[in-house]
């Protein structure tokens, strides 16, 4: 299956990735091979087979509605690139 450079650039744009020309070219080729591999499934007769979304066959994995302590704020904020005394700080978002 062929993946064009335009498709790669569009997907990269949605994922906020900046790709150089040659990277896009190379990825188009590699992604084409990956998608082509998955395309083998199309050769099978899958009439009436439910799509698989999880590799393990588990259902209804729940927790009870119980409160647990949150993390100390200092520890939480330490993970952000920028912060003030109480919040994460990000570049100004224009609404």
């Amino acid at each position: 299956m062929e993946i064009t450079k335009e498709t790669v650039l569009k997907v990269a744009g949605l994922a906020k990735l900046n790709l150089a020309e040659e990277e896009a070219q190379r990825l188009a080729h590699e992604m084409g091979k990956i998608v082509g591999f998955a395309g083998k499934l199309a050769e099978m007769d899958l009439e009436g087979v439910q799509p698989t979304t999880h590799a393990v066959k588990l259902e209804n994995v729940f927790r009870a509605d119980e409160m647990q302590p949150s993390y100390p704020r200092e520890e939480i904020l330490a993970n952000g690139p920028e912060r003030d005394e109480a919040c994460f700080v990000v570049p100004k978002v224009v609404e």
Partner: peptide, 24 residues
């Protein structure tokens, strides 16, 4: 207080594993 009801799961930090609240 801001960011005091927060943990690695609700921040989606790498490696954190969410578990669905049955009551939801």
């Amino acid at each position: 207080e801001e960011n005091t009801h927060v943990c690695p799961i609700c921040l989606g930090l790498p490696g954190a594993l969410p578990l669905l609240n049955r009551k939801v």
